[in-house]
Design a protein around this nucleic acid. Sequence first.
DNA 1: AATATCCCTACTAAGAAAGTAGGATTGTAG
DNA 2: CTACAATCCTACTTTCTTAGTAGGGATATT
Lengths: 137, 137
Amino acid sequence: MRLSTKARYGARALVDLALARPEDTTCVRDIAERQCISPKYLEQIMARLKAAGLVKALRGRHGGYALSRPAASITIKELFEVLEGPVAAVECVDDPASCPMSDVCPTRETWVQMKQALQNVLEQTSVQDLVDRENQR
Amino acid sequence: MRLSTKARYGARALVDLALARPEDTTCVRDIAERQCISPKYLEQIMARLKAAGLVKALRGRHGGYALSRPAASITIKELFEVLEGPVAAVECVDDPASCPMSDVCPTRETWVQMKQALQNVLEQTSVQDLVDRENQR
DNA sequence: AATATCCCTACTAAGAAAGTAGGATTGTAG
DNA sequence: CTACAATCCTACTTTCTTAGTAGGGATATT
């Protein structure tokens, strides 16, 4: 059960944007270079973040990306759902009807607890929290 | 970040074994039929559980599998690590040296927290807990 | 008009997941 | 002692996902 590079790269990209002044834009090439990510791949990731409304883009020369909201209001859970999909590790957690035994299955409750535990962590962490950590060093 | 069928099937198989008398053995075919799992696939899963010492096997006619310890002493975390691998969703959590930026990276701490949260749930749940849930209905 | 940026789509190579398949080995019951 | 039912072992296959690569189109600035 590994986290994809999309989610990890995306998190670092958001922190990178949050470190810039909110009114400035940062181009993909610069983020990619600082974060050691393939620029073309990061482009796709940023496109998804934009579609989800987490960042906004400015096209043309001197264009780039910026957070669309204050870093403190963007949670890692949002990022996770955009780039990694549902937090639930088993389908029946979100959709009991997907398994005919959902209402009797003793394992399902554990998968539900797993989701809740994960979600707690992801919801409680904002991009600003990550920035604060970075600044503490 | 989905849980594999191996882990899910394995969990159900252990519960199935726990429902039998401890001194009895249950053959793969029976478990597979009750749990709606491909018998040949379940064979491979049981082999892994045996190699990890969670179950013991008896060969030959009227052979089969049984839990090697009381159900209350087998945690889902053990099962998870055998069939799903490390609980950490990112490599640097268990092995900081795998990434040169581990000691500065602000995202790592969140991945660590994710692991801890998951681990809490998995450690606190034993096969016996699952059996108890099943019996409550 | 040149250029630097985002935007969009398609392609690919490698690996993992989820089984399928076929038989070898072993212990027991008749 | 023989047939059989079970585990054991290894290889194969098919499908899906991941992690990119590639090439160009649209657009705004200088």
